[in-house]
Design a protein around this nucleic acid. Structure first.
Length: 485
RNA sequence: GGGGCCGUAGUCUAGCUUGGACCAGGAUGCAAGCCUGGGGCGCUUGUGAUCCCGGGUUCAAAUCCCGGCGGCCCCA
């Protein structure tokens, strides 16, 4: 018997792009062979994984008093164009429906690139009085953006198939800013449940959401050291409210515009989930999103098939009643070793091997996916043993990803070190910065990197004695820079 | 935004430079049978390709040219 070793992360780290494509197609999670650029197909397995992630998102939003809705895909051009900054940004990225059958449409219809301009005209109708506020809604839909850069499965697509967008309206600035805090807290909980590590940054002025006053973004780091934005929370102020005339009547009979926020998460979160926990054997899924949490592999010898399979199904019954999503891989055509590889690729957190030797001893062999370590557990304690192991795998995945990412946040104070760090280990680099837009944009160009923004709240680290890493003026804040997707 | 590489069975790939001996070769997968079975066994047989699409050049195109669609990589 060959001993299994803890999987390496060599290909994962050094050839991440290949690794990711391979996972998507071999598991399979997401089929990219559909002949329209920037689109893809969620396979049955991928769909289950996606569903698991969506359920966590939905759960956190609903617990925080958000209600789910569904708005139309089509947005008339005059609505899309109402808020000036917003349309300026999205104008180049919109798909237009121009025909109905053979007739040219009188009003062009956009495929939503995001839904502010679809939702807010309805807010205008829904909001009359103070008592109509706050509104907290969300929807999970597809959106379309005509990306001109090279597309990349799940990470840069033209049809974002899994876009959760929340939209809120409030009576006061304070309420809305509190909602921003809530949104950030909700997202933090979502990513923590997925064990995806993140840094929060306030995006620079020139990179905030078009139409927003400010944007707070969640970024993670992929195995190749490049940064991926996985969520954003925006404070919209009253810009959209004024553009869409969303007002409520105040106590003294006057009218006041509402204050708004919106926040979004896409399937990039799923790309991050797959990438963050992966290794050279495939995925590692946290148990809460793993379509199968424990797979039982029968070790079948000739003449004993019946006994072994019977036992496997019995154990499956025990685990299922204990609330563990369990499968028995009873395929006869392939050998156990083959099955191990297949289920490891899929990221199944726990494998249970059950053969004649185990049945004899009334035990089972439990193998954790992340480390491929084996433990022998009595069948009488199989449910507790599996649960404990699942928890332990979850814990370990969280610790590993958190540690990995913490190691990729570097703080330097010179331009030279900034360049070197970006070129060698990538990740996020924090430097003192003067706060000037011109300086920032020049630095982005020179470093061939993106300014992610300033650390959000608790992560603030600026020391005022330092000078701007780029222009040398007094630094007013720390800024994060990274190569990004 | 700029540049490069590429598209051949489900997947990966040989062939393309120098057009013909390629009704396209291999591996893997898939199916059946045997042998096996605690980490991708082996053997036999079978299956599977509008050579991405359209046009052009030519006696002759997977191969050369043009356009389109699609994919990957690098740089700004």
């Amino acid at each position: 018997m060959r001993l299994a070793k803890t999987p390496e992360r060599k290909v994962w780290a050094e050839n991440y792009s290949d690794w990711f494509h391979k996972i998507l197609s071999e598991v399979p999670v997401y089929d990219t062979r559909y002949p329209v650029k920037g689109t893809g197909i969620w396979t049955p397995f991928g769909f289950k994984l996606r569903k698991g992630v969506i359920e966590i998102i939905r759960d956190e939003l609903e617990k925080a008093n958000h209600e789910e809705v569904l708005f139309p895909l089509l947005i008339p051009d005059y609505m899309l164009g109402k808020e000036g900054d917003h349309i300026k940004k999205f104008d180049d990225e919109v798909y237009w429906v121009t025909h109905g059958g053979r007739d040219l449409l009188d009003v062009k219809l956009a495929l939503r690139p995001t839904s502010e301009t679809a939702i807010y005209p309805m807010f205008q109708l829904w909001v009359n009085a103070y008592s109509d506020l706050p509104i907290r809604i969300f929807q999970i839909v597809n959106i379309f953006r005509y990306e001109t850069k090279a597309t990349r499965p799940m990470i840069r697509v033209r049809e974002v198939s899994t876009f959760k967008e929340a939209h809120t309206a409030h009576a006061t600035r304070e309420d809305a800013e509190n909602q921003v805090q809530d949104g950030i807290a909700i997202y933090s909980r979502i990513f923590e449940r997925l064990r995806i590590p993140f840094f929060k940054s306030i995006r620079p002025e020139w990179d905030k959401f078009p139409g927003a006053e400010y944007s707070v973004a969640f970024d993670t780091i992929l195995p190749d050291g490049k940064v991926l934005q996985i969520g954003t929370v925006h404070f919209l102020g009253q810009g959209f409210a004024k553009a869409f005339d969303i007002k409520y009547m105040t106590a003294n009979g006057g009218y006041e515009y509402v204050w708004q926020t919106c926040y979004g998460i896409s399937e990039r979160a799923i790309a991050a989930l797959i990438s963050t926990h992966g290794d050279d054997n495939g995925m590692n899924l946290p148990s809460n999103v793993a379509p199968v949490q424990a797979v039982i592999i029968p070790i079948v010898y000739k003449g004993k098939e019946e006994d072994v399979l019977k036992k496997c199904n019995e154990v499956k019954g025990i685990l299922t009643s204990a609330g563990i999503r369990t499968a028995v891989d009873d395929r006869k055509e392939i050998t156990p070793g083959n099955k191990y590889f297949a289920w490891e690729l899929k990221g199944t957190p726990v494998r249970i091997e059950l053969g004649p030797r185990d049945i004899e001893a009334a035990t089972a062999v439990l193998v954790r996916r992340d480390l491929l370590q084996k433990t022998v557990v009595p069948i009488s304690a199989i449910a507790e043993g599996t649960k404990k192991l699942l928890a332990s795998v979850d814990e370990a995945l969280g610790e590993r990803s958190k540690k990995w990412m913490a190691e990729r946040l570097t703080k330097v104070t010179s331009l030279d070190d900034l360049q070197k760090t970006l070129d060698s280990k990538g990740g996020i680099v924090e430097v003192p910065w003067c706060g000037g837009r011109g300086c920032g944009e020049e630095m982005e160009a020179k470093m061939n990197a993106r300014i992610l923004g300033t650390p959000y709240h608790d992560e603030m680290v600026v020391e005022c004695s330092q000078s701007c890493v780029f222009c040398g003026k007094d630094a007013t804040k720390a800024i994060r820079i990274a190569r990004s997707y």
